[in-house]
Amino acid sequence: MPLFVKVERGIVDKTTFDRYVPAHIAYVKELIAAGYKARTGYWASYGGGMLLFEAESLAAAEAIVARDPLVRNHCVEYELHEWCVVVE
């Protein structure tokens, strides 16, 4: 399955953002359990974060991102890209 990357930047205050982090983590765990091989994290020295996951198509990836609690609650702006692996 193709790999996709959602690169995000927070657009709300930290208190608001942190309110939705537990739901985001639970959502990523659901993606992992469903076989999407998802990983999420944040940049240590730069605001924002990333979600890496597999999906069958760009349309499927867009649907996955749309259900992310950080997106649904307007906490982040993001870019979604297919990531083409060169070396494994």
Rank of each mutant, 00 (worst) to 15 (best):
F53S: 01
F4W: 02
M1V: 10
G47C: 07
F17E: 10
I11H: 03
V65Y: 00
T15I: 11
F17C: 11
E82F: 05
V5Y: 06
S57D: 08
E88Y: 10
D13L: 11
V21G: 03
W43Y: 14
G41V: 03
R19S: 10
G35D: 08
A55K: 03
G47F: 08
K14Q: 13
A60N: 04
Y46A: 11
A60L: 04
H81D: 11
A34I: 07
M50Y: 12
D68V: 00
E62C: 03
E82D: 06
P22W: 02
E8F: 15
V5F: 08
L3R: 15
M50D: 05
E54K: 07
H81Q: 13
L51D: 01
E62W: 03
C75G: 01
V86Q: 13
H24D: 05
L51K: 01
I32Q: 15
E79H: 12
N73W: 02
E8N: 12
E56G: 12
T16V: 13
Y42E: 12
I25L: 15
A23V: 04
L80F: 02
Y78W: 08
M50V: 14
Y42G: 12
Y20V: 03
A60T: 04
G41S: 07
N73L: 01
A38N: 00
L31E: 02
G48D: 01
K29G: 09
P69V: 04
R9D: 11
A60S: 09
E54G: 02
P2M: 05
H81W: 11
A60V: 04
R39V: 09
E54R: 05
W43H: 11
